[in-house]
Design a protein around this nucleic acid. Structure first.
Lengths: 206, 206
DNA sequence: AAATGGTTTAACCAAATGGTTAAATTAGAT
DNA sequence: ATCTAATTTAACCATTTGGTTAAACCATTT
């Protein structure tokens, strides 16, 4: 056993480096040599452990997708009422992507150039949003929220969470006149404000 | 004069081809040869007319940005009341990006890898969202909408418009189980529903 | 300590890629 | 018709890039 637990072994170093480079530059923009340099190893080791650029990229992409796809849905079961869940989902998700701000854009961008990637990945993951659909429909029946297509509500919540992060340069430059601190403050505020906004759009008061 | 008005001249053919290829594949993924093939011309002509890949890309990027940045703001002046404007802005913008669905993702993605591009482009364009800020603040004062940060409202509207289009593969596959017609119907519906959603989130009824 | 098998490296390779060049072609002016 | 200047093309070039290979290295077993 080489692995001393304290320092990463080669495979881990490669994955960490590949994540960094691929997520930052995309499949087409990434260079195998840059990944090797980032990992501090010889380029041949990339092929020794992962065969090809495409295969290594696949690892990174699946990791990224798995990290970001399911958390949303899981957060939606539990005993709390719908609005509390919504608040929790948004706060959790925004915190997660705030820590990995390049990943949503990476996934969207790579899927845009190669939507096929999604087909394979979904086979291995079986994502089921049916429970979320059901939860929304129940609220509509209970008349706690107004009639709305569940798909529409889900898309809205996702868009409100993801957009300010993937569009950071534009938002920061144009809306906040280049002030990164204002941008960050906005992100922080959205952890509560997005749910607040959505709830005030759908809640039926009586 | 070579130009017969009916058929595009070489420069135009190049730009059209470059738009298609760059917007589809991004700067890093695009190939000069592919652009030449798409335009039906010799690769040397790309350099003859536009010097380098970077310069040709700059043309395309500025065109894309100019097409998509300002329309939003312009639609916001006029005599109509705030909610009518909002409805019009959303419908207009969604129609525009529906016809060019790859452009928003293209801009976001390229700015993500090189935010510096935005700095130059803003010099040539001077985008001023101040009027929109003001319009929102006035509505708040008039108590037609609840107290909300203007930046927050703008970001929300943009996110609700842009997200379902840039995330098409995910939305279509996961939320609509692969049904493109359902996806398209959703987009169509959003031309009115997004404004409706936003208005119900901010309107003060009395 | 010698053998073994996994790991790592330097050197190398073929294909791809952005870009150049010089010749050929074309269109308009004289 | 001939000249001229812009346009277009094929051939070429240097560099980059993903990938391979064979030798070196190193830890463990015997």
């Amino acid at each position: 056993m080489v692995n001393k637990m304290t320092e990463k072994n080669t495979e881990e170093k490669i994955i960490a480096a590949a994540e960094k480079v691929f997520i930052e530059k995309g499949l087409a923009g990434a260079r195998m040599q840059e990944i090797a340099d980032e990992a501090g190893i010889n380029k041949s080791l990339l092929h020794y452990y992962y065969r090809s650029k495409e295969l290594l990229f696949g690892m990174v992409f699946r990791f990224a997708f798995k990290t970001f796809a399911p958390d949303l849905l899981k957060a939606f079961d539990g005993p709390d009422d719908f609005f509390t869940k919504l608040e929790r989902v948004v706060a959790t998700y925004l915190t997660l992507i705030e820590k990995n701000p390049h990943i949503p854009g990476f996934i969207i961008s790579e899927l845009s150039t190669n939507p096929n990637r999604l087909v394979e990945i979904i086979k291995l993951m079986n994502i089921d949003i049916q429970p979320v659909f059901k939860a929304i429909e129940e609220e509509i029946e209970k008349k706690t929220i107004r009639k709305i297509e569940p798909s529409e509500l889900i898309i809205n919540v996702l868009g409100l969470c993801v957009f300010p992060i993937i569009a950071k340069p534009m938002v920061e430059t144009i809306i906040f006149k280049g002030s990164e601190s204002d941008y960050k403050a906005m992100l922080e505020k959205r952890k509560t404000e997005v749910a607040h906004f959505v709830i005030s759009a759908i809640k039926i008061k009586d």
